[in-house]
Amino acid sequence: MLTDVTHATVLVADVDEALEFYTEKFGFEKRANEEFAPGMRWVTVAPEGGRTELALKAPTEDFFGDEAAKLRERIGQGTVTVLATDDCRETVATLEGNGVTVTNAPEEVPWGVSAMVEDCYGNPYNLVEER
């Protein structure tokens, strides 16, 4: 049976730009940065100590072939990924200080405190401090 989610793909226009954003702005750690074929890289990031990694993927023809153009149109249109935080308000203040776009300020919700932020391409992230 299925036991865990290990990776989720985030479509980005430029892997190096995204890697810098996720490590410098979000404070994630780089887990992998490997070239496995000419023009094809496996780059992953994750919160320090976190299990699930985000695979940063630029839709190039080398890797995606005829689907690349269609996938490039989806950059910034990703589904909402939920990120856990111990203190949503403090995390949002830190991220804002790092230049991260906050689309919804922290607010009390039935399950805790929630806020919305975006990466450098507009991919949405829901920050959740659970009760």
Rank of each mutant, 00 (worst) to 15 (best):
T91W: 02
G97A: 09
G122S: 13
E130A: 11
R72H: 06
A105S: 13
L19R: 08
G122F: 15
L95K: 05
P47T: 03
T3Q: 11
A55N: 05
N98W: 04
L95D: 00
A18Y: 02
A68L: 05
G49D: 03
D119E: 09
V80S: 06
G97Y: 04
I75P: 01
A93Q: 10
G50M: 02
E67P: 00
E17Q: 11
T94G: 05
A46R: 01
A46S: 12
K57F: 14
F63Y: 09
A13M: 14
T60Y: 07
G99C: 05
T103N: 10
E129R: 06
P106F: 03
A55L: 09
D86Q: 10
E34P: 08
E118N: 11
C88D: 05
G76E: 03
G112R: 02
A105K: 12
A84P: 02
F26T: 07
T44C: 08
A115N: 02
N33R: 07
F26L: 12
F63Q: 05
V10P: 01
L54D: 03
K25P: 03
R41F: 11
F64Q: 07
P106V: 05
V102G: 04
D86F: 01
L2I: 14
E17A: 14
N98I: 09
T85S: 12
T23H: 11
D86P: 07
A32I: 00
M116E: 08
G50L: 02
Y121W: 14
R74E: 14
R31M: 09
L127G: 02
T103S: 14
V117I: 15
T81Y: 10
P124A: 15
E34Y: 15
A58S: 10
T6A: 06
V45G: 02
R31G: 01
R89Q: 13
R31L: 07
L19V: 10
A8C: 14
R74V: 10
A32E: 06
V109M: 09
N104G: 13
E96D: 07
T85Q: 08
V82H: 05
V128I: 14
T44V: 08
R51C: 01
